[in-house]
Simulated assay, not measured.
Amino acid sequence: MPQDVSPAEAITGAPVPAEPTLLGWVTGFSPDVLVLTGVVSAAVVILTWYARLRRRGDAWPLARVASLLVGLGLIAWTSSGGAAVYGHILFSAHMVQHMVLVMLAPIFLVLGAPVTLAVRALPARGDGTRGPRELLLALVHSRVAGVFAQPVVAAVNVAGSMIVFYYTPLFELSLTNHLAHLGMIVHFTLAGYMFVNVLVGVDPGPKRPSYPLRLVLLFSTMAFHAFFGLSLTMGESLLASSWFGGLGLPWGVDALADQQWGGAFAWGFGEVPSLALAVALGLAWIRDDERAAKRLDRASDRDGGAELEAYNARLARMAGGSTPSRPDQETTR
């Protein structure tokens, strides 16, 4: 006689893991071979590039290498670690996966400047053919990349993708189809990467907007995440109900309550990396203003203050007054 299986096992096609604990979140392992292969391969390539630069005598910050490895590690944990063990059967755990992919891992990847590292490490071809370096630069400067790297497009992609994904059959498809699940991982990681790159990236690409506009985009996205999380927390309709509603987990899980808890996590956790980005943007803005002030000071020293005098004269004309005298002119009168 066939062995009886639980509803959860019948739906997911896999044994039900033990009840979630902190240890289970840390040590749980459900390998996604394709994602792990990609992550390990990327880590090996990054370390190879770093070693190549060191052998050549070129400096490259070790902190950037570490940042890239942390970002890859977060993707690996999200797809194969404790988050993956529970993300298939608990909406709250799935939301942990989502927020790490779209909000946390991209920060480490962007700060690692992978494109700049690749451009410096890969050899350039002088015979007119296209090698990996030339293809990478062509992709970075392509029209498609330029469109998705536009600030508003990047922000709308992050926010709009969440609505399209969770409130359409795509969400349940990602639970029942592994290719769709892989597509979710790739899409949200790239969407988060493009958005963070607009804000604090250093890699080559389209011109980044002014710092005020970057802050507006960031705070708008923070507000959307808060709204999205609140809508899940207050919602009374179960998403992917035929999946989560039929699992009958042995720990006595209320699927709707778990979804609401997932919304609360999205609301709260989403603000943490966003605030970190806001602080980073503020500091970068201050440093940029300081560099601009130093450039103006050097220019003033070279031309004897002519640029500042012309600026003051323009202000005086706009105000309808006379052209102000330079301080050294006042003292000679």
Rank of each mutant, 00 (worst) to 15 (best):
E307S: 10
A257V: 06
W267V: 01
V279S: 01
L277F: 09
S274Y: 04
L308E: 11
G268W: 02
A284K: 01
Q260L: 00
P273E: 04
V279K: 00
Q329D: 10
G263D: 10
L283A: 12
L283M: 09
T331C: 01
D301V: 02
K294Y: 10
A319H: 07
R291F: 09
R287D: 15
D258A: 07
S274E: 03
D288L: 08
F269Y: 11
N312G: 00
L283V: 15
A293F: 12
T331D: 12
L296M: 13
P327D: 03
L315A: 08
D301F: 06
A293R: 15
E290S: 02
E309G: 06
G268E: 03
G321A: 12
R314L: 03
G321Q: 10
R333D: 12
G270A: 12
G305A: 04
Q259L: 04
D297I: 05
G263A: 06
A319T: 05
G270L: 05
L281N: 04
Q329V: 05
A310N: 09
V272R: 00
D289H: 14
G304W: 08
A280Q: 10
P327G: 00
S300I: 00
G321K: 08
A292N: 14
A316S: 11
L275I: 12
Q329L: 02
G305Y: 09
A292H: 14
R317N: 02
G282I: 07
D258N: 14
F269H: 03
L256W: 14
A255Q: 04
L281W: 05
D258F: 11
A264S: 13
G305M: 03
D297R: 08
A276H: 01
A310C: 01
W261M: 15
A313Y: 01
T323A: 06
P327R: 02
L296G: 04
Q329P: 00
G304A: 11
D288E: 15
A292V: 14
A266T: 10
A299G: 14
A299L: 14
A316C: 03
L256P: 13
A310K: 08
S300Q: 07
W285I: 07
G268M: 06
L283K: 07
L275M: 07
G262L: 08
E307N: 04
R326L: 02
A284S: 08
P324V: 01
F269I: 05
A257P: 03
S300G: 15
G262C: 09
D297Q: 08
Y311H: 14
E290L: 12
L275F: 07
A257Q: 10
L315P: 03
S325D: 13
A292Q: 15
A306W: 06
E330K: 05
R295H: 13
A280N: 04
D301G: 11
M318H: 11
R295F: 06
L296W: 10
R298G: 10
Y311V: 11
D258T: 07
R298D: 15
A319G: 04
P324I: 01
M318D: 07
A257S: 12
G262I: 07
G270I: 07
W261P: 00
P273R: 05
E307L: 12
L315V: 12
D289Y: 07
R333Q: 11
R291M: 13
L277V: 10
K294E: 15
